[in-house]
Each structure stands twice: as C-alpha cells, then as structure tokens.
Amino acid sequence: MREINKIEVKNLNLFYGEHQAINNVNIQIVSHSITAFIGPSGCGKSTFLRVLNRMNDLIDGVKTNGEVYIDGKEIYQSDVDVVALRKKVGMVFQRPNPFPMSVYDNIAYGPRIHGIKDRKKLDQIVERSLRQAVLWEEVKERMYKSALGLSGGQQQRLCIARLLAVEPEVLLMDEPTSALDPISTLKIEELVRDLKNDYTIVIVTHNMQQAARISDSTAYFLNGEIIEHDATDIIFTNPRHQQTEDYITGRFG
C-alpha cells in the first residue's frame, strides 16, 4: 500500500464576500485513493473541491486563506503556475460539457494547447485516452463526427477522456453522474474505480450509495465544515458523529 498524502489541507477558510463558505477545513487525501465528499446542498463541498485546483480564483469576491499542499507544494503561493496546476489537477463537472467539435478534436484539444502538433502523437493520445475512459469501442467509427451527437453517458466519459489526455494526477469530480441514467452511472463508477490505480480521485456526490460503493474514504461536510472524515466502511456502518448518522440515514433536517 502506498500511503502517501497526495493532498493536504490545513486550516482552510473561504469567503464569498462577507459570507464564510468554508470554515477551518483540515483534510489529508491519500494518493491513489477515491475520496467522496457528501453533505447537503450548500454545505461547501463543491466550493472546497474547486479550492483544490484554484478554480475559485475565477469567481469574483472569493477570498481564501489557509494552506493547500499537493505533493508537498503549497498551491496558493504566488509563484505557482495555475495553468500547470489545473493540468495536474483536472476536473469533471455535473453536466457533460463536450466542446462543439468532433470527438477527436475534443480529446486532442488539451494536448494541442500544451504544444503537441505531431499528428501521430495526437492519434496515440486520443486512442489511449478514449480506451482509458472505456469509450474507444463506442466511438472509434465516428471520431470525426460531432461529440454533441453522443449520449449523455458517452459525453461524460468523453469529458473524462479529454481530461486524461493531458495526463493529470488528481481528478476532481463534481457530481459526475447526477445527470446520467443508472446504466451510464454504473459505467462511470466502474471507470472511476479503474482509474484509481493511476490517479488520486476526489468525488462530490449526492448519491449516498455511490459514495458507499466506490470510495475508500468519505468526508461529511456540513455548513462549511468537515464533521467527519473516515474510511467509507466506517462512515456508512458505524459513523462516530450523530450528525453524520442523521444525514446518511436520511433523518437530516
């Protein structure tokens, strides 16, 4: 077992203007693991996810303090290359958002931006990424048709393939299956489990069964705080905090 902390967050606070959305969060995320963030809407889990690749920098009026280390490097220091950071720490969103271009160009987009022009090299990357995202067999005959013609589940796997094409190390997933049917959801879950061998994955989900099924550890967020973070096994069979128990058993509120 490689028990190395990929991500370490210390005393993190985040404000939207006057409103404090994240309150003194501390967490360690082990390399090559799947961590699920659960909690009611508005509890700060998606906001916190965006802390991990500085996506909140793009939102006006957000102020952050505290420390976030990825591979031991503090990512909020002024000398950090944010573009490189987001390449290393990629993100998948709730709704699949393929670019309005061909399947091939969607995947090749990132590598091209990062300077890869060689057609052969691009072909390799596209195929490898699509295979990793378990989409290759379904799209290999229609590489040059618009990605918008794919089903929702296929589009989401396309977005994951697009992410993998730039060789990230951490995958942040913000409710990646909430817009998908159960079969597509299971495919994504299988995929996420496979990807764990090569990536560190953090997933926000409202689907409790999903968190229980796929994650190694689970953190319960409430009102911008982490109430409990432990092995998923423990969280779903015998959580230590009554608030966690109330939430996962559906007696919250």
Partner: peptide
C-alpha cells in the same frame, strides 16, 4: 430503503 449505519445494523 437503502439503509445505512444504525438502520442497517
């Protein structure tokens, strides 16, 4: 009902 925690126990 997909019970968890004490409900499941």
């Amino acid at each position: 009902q997909q019970p968890f925690a004490k409900d499941l126990r």
